[in-house]
Amino acid sequence: MTTVVLADDEALLRKALAALLPLEGDITVLAEAADGAEAVSATLRHRPDVLVIDLEMPGVDGLGAVAEIRGVHPDQVILMLTRHAKPGVLRRALKLGVQGFVSKSAEPAHITSVIATLHEGRRWIDPDVSALALIDDCPLTDREIDVLRATSYGYSVADIAGQLHLAEGTVRNYLSNAMGKTQTQSRHEAARYAREHDWL
């Protein structure tokens, strides 16, 4: 029996997976989470064999939740669901130790089989996801991506500094570098440019 926590802000998809995965394989869904913060608390509370988490969620996104969970349990097995496999995001997820990537449009039977693969200690990246990840023309560093992502959510420089445990001056330097690389006039323009180019 493989235990799972499901985290996705799309209630319909989350409920469908919670109902279908146990029918497709030897899976028990221990808990569901509707955002990143709930995903962190549910995973730390239940310690599932595999966390199945959506990449894009409100508030703390999938990557942010994974980073928090890995800080406490570095061995947690994670399967990330995504609609848009942006190269920079995939690179960051792999650096965080995410073992699996599957498209949200995948059949429940496929997701079940990937969960089993990860539970056996192997990795899985869907071919369409890995093909997109090879096209990586992002000139931004990981930290520049972090501050631009926070900017795109509307956080101030002070908020970003607090979230990322950086000095405000350091955040401003990252933003300035990102503005230079994107040839934009403001941090919000730089964040918009990065999103349009699938770098965030």
Results as ranks from 00 to 15, higher is better:
87 P>V: 01
112 T>N: 13
92 R>A: 11
105 S>Y: 00
30 L>G: 05
141 T>E: 04
82 T>Q: 06
50 V>K: 08
90 L>H: 10
85 A>K: 01
121 G>P: 11
61 D>R: 04
122 R>F: 10
132 L>H: 13
134 L>F: 14
69 I>T: 01
38 E>S: 12
66 V>D: 03
57 M>A: 08
34 A>S: 15
72 V>Y: 00
52 V>Q: 08
57 M>W: 08
137 D>P: 07
42 A>Y: 11
93 A>V: 04
110 H>S: 09
49 D>S: 10
95 K>M: 12
78 I>P: 06
79 L>P: 06
142 D>P: 09
59 G>H: 08
129 V>M: 03
143 R>N: 14
120 E>Q: 15
128 D>E: 15
40 V>L: 03
117 T>A: 09
65 A>I: 05
91 R>N: 02
63 L>Q: 03
46 H>N: 15
102 V>K: 10
40 V>P: 04
76 Q>S: 11
136 D>P: 02
46 H>Q: 15
38 E>T: 10
129 V>D: 09
109 A>Y: 02
102 V>I: 12
133 A>N: 06
76 Q>H: 02
107 E>N: 14
127 P>C: 00
31 A>G: 01
64 G>F: 00
103 S>P: 13
58 P>Y: 04
66 V>I: 11
31 A>C: 00
72 V>E: 13
80 M>A: 03
140 L>Y: 01
135 I>A: 08
56 E>H: 15
128 D>P: 12
106 A>C: 06
118 L>C: 07
60 V>L: 15
104 K>G: 10
47 R>K: 15
44 L>P: 00
60 V>K: 15
119 H>Q: 13
33 A>W: 06
138 C>E: 01
86 K>W: 14
110 H>M: 11
34 A>E: 13
123 R>V: 10
71 G>A: 15
124 W>D: 11
61 D>Q: 09
58 P>A: 06
53 I>W: 02
